[in-house]
Every structure is written in structure tokens, then in C-alpha cells.
Design a protein around this nucleic acid. Sequence first.
DNA 1: TTTTTTTAAGGTTGATTTAAGGTTGACCCT
DNA 2: AGGGTCAACCTTAAATCAACCTTAAAAAAA
Lengths: 225, 225
Amino acid sequence: MRLLIIEDDKYLSDSICETVKELFEPEQAFDGEEGLFLAEQNIFDVIILDIMLPSMNGYEVLQNLRKQNITTPVIMLTAKDGIDDKIQGFKVGADDYLVKPFHREELLLRLEAMVRRSGGLLKENVITFKELKLNIKNKTAEIQGEILKLNGKQFDLLEYLINNKNAILTKEQIFDRIWGFESDTSMTVVEVYASNLRKNLKKYGYDHYIKTFRGLGYMLTDNGE
Amino acid sequence: MRLLIIEDDKYLSDSICETVKELFEPEQAFDGEEGLFLAEQNIFDVIILDIMLPSMNGYEVLQNLRKQNITTPVIMLTAKDGIDDKIQGFKVGADDYLVKPFHREELLLRLEAMVRRSGGLLKENVITFKELKLNIKNKTAEIQGEILKLNGKQFDLLEYLINNKNAILTKEQIFDRIWGFESDTSMTVVEVYASNLRKNLKKYGYDHYIKTFRGLGYMLTDNGE
DNA sequence: TTTTTTTAAGGTTGATTTAAGGTTGACCCT
DNA sequence: AGGGTCAACCTTAAATCAACCTTAAAAAAA
């Protein structure tokens, strides 16, 4: 679970990081433009967005995102308490709202509720797909009783696929998520890893479940065909 | 959209009804047990739940519901302002929280955000024409229960036609939309794709619905002949 | 060293485009 | 009305092209 914090108050931002680090991998942006740029990568599970920001305010960031059909859940954060702000925030597409100062526990709970609502699961130690079990913590995979050896990025890919089963993931998304959007390696690595992953799953007949959609991306699916 | 309001203050309950009646069909319950009974029917899209209630408090109602795997989104409502209440509410599975007194507009916006999150969005990912369903996200088509395989541009064409059913689309429009107006391929591809699409729909008797208007363009229509 | 990651190259598949010949229907002429 | 002509459209199949797969070797990391 990746969380983007767009907040110019470094002290507050760090403190949020600290608060959530059990459940999320946080990333920080300290002004509006930087935040928008990062959010546009569309690789985060939740975004915490302050309203008063240098270079571009929170509303603009959010509006911009929604215009691009990026639907990552957003929690707006502000010192202002007026209802007008709340209304504006929701109109632009925020999913929740938190008034500073807030209790850490409340933030955590709202984050959880948010992620739960949007179908995601909080960081679990074990995720499964049919008879395939991934232990996120030790990065081990088990299938039909046997232990399956997967190296780092292959594991990450499989994890990402399982967490988004029955949804198409574009090569861009996969690349941005696993290699990082600023990585300068070529996007064809994704194909190579898809290939390797399939090879490893073939033994168990699970390679079929990774479907490629030409021009669109990949999907892990369990509904037959 | 059906909304259940579980709130013992009749005046407040009525006033909520009034506020939301544009967007929801509200139903009222005035104590915990009645509310639980109604909620158990699992026919509502959202529930507004007060905490202080006769016969059974809001936490118990919610806990009970979740235990039965009823996941209707719930907004908790209370006069208490302490963080402890919020925590308890979220722990039991509330999806949002509102402190009395609240602005009507805020309630409305939270309701909208809630519904949007819990599948309101999903509906926009699917468009239909008679028994034909297109899932825009997965780019899959389903007709009369069967899955229909369409390649990229065929799918795009069908999507465009469905979104403009009962309106004539010129070949230029179709071409510009799907191939891009700067494309240097010949406009006759549109005919080829119309042909292929019809061939694929023929099996289900849906080819007739794509009518060509000589000199004008194509139209997808569902009113007979 | 051993393992993992990245690059490079050639092969495969299937979508897209072109081309060619066949239909259809509008319009004109006698 | 009937027949001829033509342009628009349909259909098919072959040619082309881009996306993707696979493999193996090179580079980097452990």
C-alpha cells in the first residue's frame, strides 16, 4: 500500500509518515506541482492532500487529477474549518476531509476506512490467488504445497497482479509501480518479467491465468475460459 | 438509491429526509432494533446511523450488521465530539462519521462521495445496448451471457456507436475519433471495420442494428426497422 | 562467485491496412 | 417502366506492421 503525502509543512509531513508507516509505504511531496506530478503516475493507493500549498493549491491539484480520470482516493487536509472549504473539496472529488489539528488515530482510521471502501485491502502478510500463496513479509511464494522460488521483481510483479486481479494493468502502470517511473531502464523489461513469471508458473498450470491484452496490458484472472 | 436513516430524533430525521430527497429514497427507523431489522433486509445503498438510540445503540447495530457480512456503507452520526467515539465507530466498520450539528450540504456531499466510492463509479465502466454489455475498463464485451471477443478498434467502434445510439455518425466522425484525424490511412478502413463488427454480431442477430445511411454514415438503433 | 537485472536480437502472433472485385441503390435516359 | 451507369458501400483475403514473446548474453549487484 503506497501513500502519497502532499504537505508543505515538513514537520507535519514527517509526523504523518511516522504515524502510518506500519500500514503504508509513504512518499512525500512538498508543493503542489511536485505532488501533482507524483500523483499523476497513478501508482498510489491513497493520497493525503493539504489545501494551502506553494506553487499550486490542493484544489487545483485534485481537480487536475480527476480531469485525468485518476481516481485514487484523496483525503483533504486543512487548517481552515469553514464548511465552504469542505464543500469545495468534495465537489472537486475528494473522498474525505480532515481538519488540522487532528488526532493521529483518527487519521489512521480514516485511511483504513478509505482503503477498505475502495476495495483495497490493508497490508496483509499473505495474499492468495487460487492455490497460490504469497507471504509478503518474507517474500516467499507457495503453490500447491510446494515452495516456489521467485526473485525480487518477479515476486513484486506477481504481488501487483494478484492485488489487482481481474483488472487490466498497463505496462506503464506495472513499470511505474515496480521499477519507478523515473527509472531509465526500458519498458521491455516488463515483458521479460512477464515471460519469466509465466515460465515459473507453467509447471503448475498457472501461466494461463496471466493474460495479455494486446495494446492494453496484462491481467491476472481466475474466471475460466 | 435507497437510504436508511436510523435516528430517534424525529425532527432531525425528517429534516434529513428533506435534505436528501433529491438524490435518495429515504426510509426511517426510530430505534436501534427497528433499524437493525430494516438494515438486515440488505436493500439499502447507504445507511445513516445515530449512536445514541433507544433499545440498541448504534455501535451494536453496526457490529451486528457487519457480523452478518452486510457491507452497506454506513455514516455514523453523533452529538458527541470525542475522538474515542470516532475510533469505536470506525473499528466496528463505519465508513464515515459526522458530528452533530452538521451542515446539510456536508451531509449531502459525504453521501455522494460514499456512493461514488462504493460502486457508483463501477456503473460508468459498463455501457449497454439491449443485451450487449461493454466493460470499458477491461475492454471486454458480453452478449446474451457469452463473452464476445473484439479486437481493439472493433471494440472502440462499438463503444462509439453505443454511446451515440440513434444518432447518425459520419464516416469522418468515426475515422477522426478512432484513427485520429491526422492518420494517413484510407477512410475505407471504417467500412472494413463496420463489416467485421457486423460479422461478429451476426451470430447473435445484432448485425441488423447497425444501419448504414448512404452518403451520410452509420447509426446504431434499437427501434425496429 | 552466484544471483539478479537489463539489454539486445530474432521469432511469433495477431491486429491493421491495402487492394480488388462484388453489391446495392440512386439517378438519368430513352 | 425498364435498363444502364455510376458512386457508395460491402466483403474477403493477402500483405504489412507493430506488439509481444523468448532466449541468451552482458552488466550489475549481492
